Simulated scan of single mutants.
Amino acid sequence: MAGTTRSEKTVGWRLLSFIVIPFLLLVGRYRFRNVDKLPAGAFILAPNHYSNFDPLVTAYALWRAGRVPRFLAKASLFRVPVLGAILRATGQIPVERAGTTAGADPLAAASRLVDDGLAVIVYPEGTLTRDPQMWPMRGRFGAVRLSLEHGIPIVPCAHWGVQEILPRYSKKLSIFPRKNVDVIFGEPVDLSPWQDKPKTGATYAAATTAVMQSITKLLEELRGERAPLERWDPAEHGQTEFGRLEN
Rank of each mutant, 00 (worst) to 15 (best):
M1K: 08
A2W: 04
G3S: 13
R6I: 09
G12P: 06
R14I: 12
S17A: 09
I19F: 12
P22V: 12
P22W: 11
G28F: 01
Y30D: 11
Y30V: 13
L38V: 02
A42T: 04
A42L: 07
I44A: 13
I44E: 06
H49C: 02
H49R: 05
F53L: 07
P55N: 02
L56E: 09
A61H: 02
L62N: 07
W63S: 15
G66V: 06
V68N: 11
P69K: 13
R70E: 08
R70M: 11
A73D: 06
A75D: 14
S76F: 03
L77A: 13
P81Q: 10
V82W: 12
G84H: 03
A89T: 09
T90H: 06
Q92F: 04
I93W: 02
V95W: 08
E96V: 13
T100S: 07
A104K: 10
P106H: 00
P106L: 04
P106V: 08
D116A: 14
Y123P: 14
P124C: 06
L128C: 11
Q133C: 07
W135G: 10
P136Q: 07
R138D: 00
G139E: 00
R140S: 07
R140F: 02
R140L: 09
G142T: 03
S147W: 03
L148G: 03
E149Y: 10
E149A: 14
P156Y: 09
C157I: 02
W160M: 04
E164W: 12
R168N: 15
K172F: 13
F176I: 11
F176Q: 11
R178A: 14
N180G: 15
N180Y: 09
D182N: 08
I184T: 06
E187W: 02
P188I: 00
P193N: 00
Q195W: 01
G201C: 06
A202Y: 01
T203L: 01
A205H: 07
A205P: 05
A205M: 08
A205F: 13
T208V: 07
M212F: 00
S214L: 01
S214V: 01
S214I: 00
K217L: 06
K217C: 08
L218F: 00
L219S: 06
E220L: 01
E220I: 03
L222W: 01
R226Q: 12
A227C: 06
L229A: 13
E230P: 04
A235S: 07
Q239R: 05
E241D: 15
E241R: 14
G243Y: 00
G243A: 05
G243L: 03
R244D: 14
R244N: 15
L245W: 07
L245H: 05
N247G: 12
